[in-house]
Design a protein around this nucleic acid. Sequence first.
DNA 1: TCCGCAGTGCGTCATAGGTC
DNA 2: GACCTATGACGCACTGCGGA
Length: 290
Amino acid sequence: MFLQPSSKRMSENVHSDDMDGNSAAISVVHMPSLNQPVQVQSVIHSNQPSVIQTAGPNIQTIQVVRVAAVDDDINEECEGKKRREILSRRPSYRKILNELSSPVTKMEEESNSSQSQDGESQEAATNLSTHSGVQFQQGDLVPSGAIQITSDGTSVAQGLQTLTMTNASPTTSAATGATIVQYAQGPDGQFYIPGTVQAYQIATSGSLPQGVVMATAGSPMSSPTNMGEEQSRKRELRLLKNREAARECRRKKKDYVKCLENRVAVLENQNKTLIEELKALKELYCQKEG
DNA sequence: TCCGCAGTGCGTCATAGGTC
DNA sequence: GACCTATGACGCACTGCGGA
C-alpha cells in the first residue's frame, strides 16, 4: 500500500502547508474512465514561506484561557477526559462565520476589498472558489490552488497515467514538500491501491467534502482471511479522510480568526468615527448655544 | 554554538452533531 | 441506529529567537 505519508514524513515534507493560505487539501477531480488501469499519483505541494504569517496569538490564547479556567481542581489522570466533558463543543466555524455575516461584516468586506487584495484570506477565498465543484480534465491548466492533471505515459507502464495534483502558487516549486497518494483505477472505474487486492471505488465529486479526494471501499470481501486486510484498509481510508478533514478544519479556523480580527478592526474604526462625529456635533451645539 | 522556549503545523484519536 | 463529518485535544517535529 502506498498511502504514503506517515506522520513523520508528513511533518518533514508538508511542514508549512497552508500557512500562506494555500491549503494542501486535494480537490475533487473528475477521472475519465479508461480501458486500462490508471495509476494515479497525487502530489500536493505545499509552500514553504520563509515568513510565517500567524493569525496572532489568538488561537493559543483562547485555548489556554478556557482550559485554565476549568482545570484548577482536576486530577491529572482524568484531566483530559473531564476537560473534554467540560468543554462543550462549539458550533462549527462555518456556522459561526455564517452568523458573522452581519452588516458589519459585509461593510468590513467592502472596506477591505480595495486594500487587502494581496491578503491571505483573499487568497484563501480564491482557492475556495476554484476548488468547489470544479472539474478538470487531463492536461488542463488550472488556476493557482487548484489541481493540475498531466499525462505521463512514459513514466509508468503502458496505458497507465499519472495524475499530478499541485497546489501551485507563484512561489511554489516542485521541490517543496509534497504529499503523495497513489492508487489505480480499473476499467470499471474502480480504484486499486498498489499492493492490495481489493478494488476501491472512487467516490463521486458530489459526495465528497470539499478539498478531498477519496476512495471508498467497494466490492465486499467475504473471505475471513481478508477481513484483517479489509479492516486495515478501512482504517487507512478513515485516517486519510480525517487527515484531510483536519486540514480543512484548521484552514477554516484560521479564516475564522482572521474574520474576527477584521471585525474588530472595523468596529474600532466605526467607534472612532462615531466618537469624532459626536465631538463635532457637540462643538456645533455649543457654538449655537453660545 | 548550544539550549530552552514559544509558536506553528501535522497526524491521530475521541466524540458531538448531522444525515440517511 | 449506523455512518459520516467537523472539531477539540493531544503529542510530536520543526523553526526562529534570545540568552548563556
